[in-house]
Amino acid sequence: MTDVLFWIMSGISVLSAWRVFRTDSMVRAAYWLMVSFAAVAVILVLLSAEFLGLVLLLMLAGEMTIMAVFMVMFMMNPAGLNPMTMVHQHRAAIAAGVLSFLGLGAVGVFGRFPAGVSFATRDVTARLGMELLNDSMLIFQTAGVTLLATMIGALAIASRRGRYGLADEDSIEPAVENSQNAGEGPPSTEKGSA
């Protein structure tokens, strides 16, 4: 049963990963990637890394939607209604992809791993929790601090320097508005004062 599920999931994950770069619609691309990830998450659950798989799912739902929204924001043609190719160095990229697959696959097939070790038992999540908050607390904390630093850093990079007010104040930059007033003045105020 697990084997059947595994084959289905690996099929889904690889096929949808391939679809990511083969669809015109950016939103579809983002969600194909999500499907691929979800299949990987299921495989992780099958490997009894339950917590890890679920955290992956939890994270990527938001992540992929943000990705899709970014696509819609920045791309001129997010729905792929004007199909056009947006690739460069196509052949080299294919070669690199195939090469890395062959190389890593070879490691997987011909590599020798300590075998015969039993699967993890049912209380994996509890044991992972004990590990995280015990011996490996430093790693856990480092990951946390890294994420915090990332949040601050990302905000600092992305936000506009010298913002002129709250997000909800006005949609017009002060400079734009001033020049407008200097020129003609919005008719509403003109009327009001007249």
Binding site: S13, V98, L102
Partner: peptide, 11 residues
């Protein structure tokens, strides 16, 4: 499993 992982990585 490692083959699948390699395929994902390659893509």
């Amino acid at each position: 499993l490692l083959l699948v992982a390699a395929a994902l990585f390659g893509i």
